[in-house]
Amino acid sequence: MTVNWIQTPHTRASDLEVSHDGIPPGKEAIYAQEPVLSARNLVITFGRVVGLDGVDLDLYPGEVLAVIGDNGAGKSTLIKCLTGAYVPNSGTITMNGREVSFKKPQDAREAGIETVYQQLAVIPALDIASNLYLAREDRRKGPLGSIFRMLDKKGMERRAGEAVQNLGIQTIQNMGQAVETLSGGQRQAVAVARAAAFGSKVVVLDEPTAALGVKESGMVLDMIKQLRDKGLSIILVSHNMPHVWEVADRIHIQRLGGRAGVITPESHDMGEGVAIMTGAKKLGGTATPAAEAPRADAVHEGSRGSEGTRAGHVEDAPADRGDRP
């Protein structure tokens, strides 16, 4: 792809329309349902720095919702609030209409939200089946399991194979193969399979293609589409605009700790998306109350928290593009 998506000479960014309820054409049925995961008015502060300033998010069953935003826009803070790594100061999170409160990542995991971390969290020396079942091993039936604590290795290997097959992941085949012998894309597939295989409803992927080459990235993107087609809901955090525009159903744009807009790949092109993300186009609408002024002050006073700078760095973005030759 050689699209110059930073500067689109034909459109003036300030003329763009931004919506909060864009629905991808042909998928109206999905959005008629109740969201599987909803966040309302999430607020979190780190000292004087506002991490999230009243963010709303809706994730529907069987959709890929991309979350994009500049460095420090609050993407990872938002994700951490949804997966129990941070506890928001205020705001509500509901799953299937029921309010939930995650104090630690294990809580979110038990509620059916699995996270695939950027650093992958797979153990190279163990085989694929052992990795899929790591920290949730099955024991043998009878006294062998209860007294001698023997693992049901054969059963786990078989069920791991079935789970991977059910998920439609074809890049990993032999469950007894050590993960260290796999390629980067296959390791990503193992991590994703583990997140998706155990009855989870929501899978959060943090920069899944950042470390991969073109072919491997394509493999991971195909896998994301397959999981979506199986009915899983996926939140995809990515800096890579071509990848986002390829797989996302809707795109949630974070900017300065707030939600700048939710668009679809059909309603806006990459250049427009980046324009909204970097603030070249501001939203005159409803969902980002009390826009930039107070937070900008906080930053200019130098009180930067864990979120780092909030200033736009458009020139950083292309470095993350995975489509090198």
């Binding site: 797979v122 153990i123 190279p124 920290a135 604590r149 693992l151 290795k153």
Partner: peptide, 23 residues
């Protein structure tokens, strides 16, 4: 044959990944 043994290998190979996996 036991989960404990598996965790010994996991912790030795990559302690951070093991922790993130719930070990």
């Amino acid at each position: 044959q036991t989960a404990w043994g598996r965790y010994v290998y996991a912790v030795g190979d990559d302690p951070e990944s093991a922790r993130l996996s719930g070990v």
